[in-house]
Simulated scan of single mutants.
Amino acid sequence: MTVAYTLKRPGRALLAGAAIGGCLVAVPFNALDFAANSQFLTVDDMMGRWFWSFAFATFFFGMGLAFVGAPAWMLLDHNGVRGPVAAASLGPALILTLNLLLDLITLQTVAINVGDVLLAGACAVVGLAVQRIAYVEADSIKPPSARPS
């Protein structure tokens, strides 16, 4: 599949990816928090926790996309690898590699737990969304029509 992209679309894709990643991280966190503390929380507490956890998750997911995902994405794009399979596998590969490096640096036992697998799945979903937003098929690009003068 030949794809072309405009300069505005990668920026929009990264912003949308940060928002989707923030949702995918904040929703399970808040569901577990609500299940553990439901009898102690008021509605205001729950709304505040949902808002701030979404804001923080979106911010940090966006920073990860900007500083880790985007450079790797640019390398793949430069080498002509632009398909959905590459986009879906880039995120999990990066997050599991970073997890391995952090385990090695902190001298912990190298292990992949359920949280790492769920985060890798969220990264795969974000990678697909970013690829879908950033790229359009070359056949669907219409040439600009001539303006009548």
Rank of each mutant, 00 (worst) to 15 (best):
A72W: 06
P10E: 09
A31N: 02
A57M: 12
G11V: 13
V27L: 14
R132I: 02
D116L: 01
K8S: 09
V136W: 04
L24W: 06
I112R: 10
G64H: 05
I105S: 12
G80M: 04
V136L: 06
F54P: 01
G64C: 03
P84A: 06
D139V: 14
S145Q: 11
A4Y: 00
T2Q: 12
F56K: 08
W52P: 03
V117P: 05
S53G: 06
A26F: 01
D45R: 00
A4R: 12
A111K: 12
A4H: 05
P143Y: 05
L14K: 01
R9P: 03
F34M: 12
H78R: 15
G83H: 07
L100C: 08
V114Y: 15
D33C: 02
A35I: 03
P84W: 09
T106C: 01
K8N: 06
L15F: 15
Y135K: 09
R12T: 14
A120M: 07
I112D: 04
V126R: 05
V3C: 00
A19I: 15
A18G: 09
E137S: 15
L90T: 13
A19L: 15
P28N: 10
L100K: 06
L15P: 09
N79C: 00
L104E: 01
W52T: 07
V27D: 02
A124C: 12
L102W: 13
A129H: 08
F67Q: 03
V130H: 10
P92D: 02
L128W: 13
D116P: 00
Y5C: 07
A134S: 12
C123P: 07
S149D: 12
F56R: 03
L76S: 03
F61R: 06
S38Y: 13
A4S: 12
R132G: 08
L100A: 15
A55G: 06
R82C: 05
L101Y: 14
T6D: 03
A120E: 10
G83Q: 03
L65P: 07
P71I: 08
I20W: 06
A4C: 01
L76P: 09
S149I: 07
T58P: 02
S89C: 04
L41E: 10
G80I: 05
L128C: 14
A138N: 03
A4M: 08
A36I: 01
T6Y: 03
P28H: 07
A86E: 05
T2W: 04
A13D: 02
V114Q: 14
Q131Y: 00
D45C: 02
